[in-house]
Write a protein that binds this DNA or RNA. Sequence first.
RNA 1: GGCCCCAUGGUCAAGCGGUUAAGACAUCGCCCUUUCACGGCGGUAACAGGAGUUCGAUUCUCCUUGGGGUCA
Length: 367
Amino acid sequence: MSKRVVVGMSGGVDSSLAALLLKEQGYEVIGLFMRNWNEEDENGCCSADADYGDVRSVCQKLDIPYYTIDLSKEYYDRVFKHFVSEYSRGRTPNPDVLCNKEIKFDSFVKHALALGADHVATGHYCNVSHTDGRHYLMKAKDEDKDQTYFLNQVSERQLEKVLFPIGNMLKSEVRELAEKYGLSTADKKDSTGVCFIGERNFRKFLSEYIPMKRGEIRTLDGKTVGFHDGVYYYTLGQRKGLGVGGVPFNKDGGRWFVAKKDVENNILYVSQGDQSMLYARELVTDGFNFVNGTPEKKEFRCAARIRHRQKEQNATCRVLENGSVKIEFDDMQRAIVEGQYATLYVGDVCIGGGVIDAVPDRDIRCV
RNA sequence: GGCCCCAUGGUCAAGCGGUUAAGACAUCGCCCUUUCACGGCGGUAACAGGAGUUCGAUUCUCCUUGGGGUCA
């Protein structure tokens, strides 16, 4: 009796090919499409419908059963609420990391196992190494597409029954194979934007959940150079959308960046040209998820990322008494942002991550 | 009120009788990207209005209008 595997299918090439590969490997494959967001996008279309159409097309081609599951309530309660609440506090959360922890690798996996699955698979670019009864989250072969950053909050237990069929393939190989097997999704554009919600005019989207609140845009020495619709819509280090241009407060001119957010007074501080105040060497997380449990050594060298696709940065980590982690980078980092995740690696193993909660050495000189 | 300056795209700012009227920032589009951002590449966009001088005016003169600055 062949093993049964449920594949989380999004309607993209990656999960399509994942399903195909598993079938080729002799698994009994079931496609499961998750519906987590039902609202229409700003163009009035609900991309979930189109995506499900692609899932259907691929599953029919592969001759495998497919189902859909609606987790929009769970998504709203366990991911989106927190997302809105964090933005309201002036932080910049990463909903996709939370989505993986709470939805894809929790609710979804539970439903999949309830279908009698022995394994659950997704089209993520990453790997799991099952060695000596342990399960390690490993980086993808395609360094350029590696998605371990988004998985930093999963636990070893969650990885136990998970398969990542395309983790050892390059994106180009995935597309080639999909093409070769005639999958309709072979040349479908990669999806971007918040997972399940998609590419949006972000400020406009947020304003549907967090009311606009006009305030001043000031330079660090206190001159008003413009107005904004709410500091929480902005991210430290951001340039676009400030609407401040030409004013020569800096003799060298240059682009304007968000330098500091005063959430309490709703004042956005900006800097022209000079970005030195955005650089810092240390960060402290709010708790920390070690995929394989807290390490023995409380201080160790590792590589870290503060953003998806950032080149790994060498750093020294220290596990604090309260379970948080303090990371000290060898090189200064630009725009370490509260609410984003710091993800750690030792070699090709992603050992975990935590929400950035404080950046003690950031220069916030300001009148 | 008298006198004196200034007036170019959204903003800042080149130009100094003949230019496809620079550039920067903003903005927009594309690329990058399963977060938010950063980044790369492109595009749109201007001589305040009216009279002169001149073969020819953004460039010179005058007036109007609109900004400053001064002096009673």
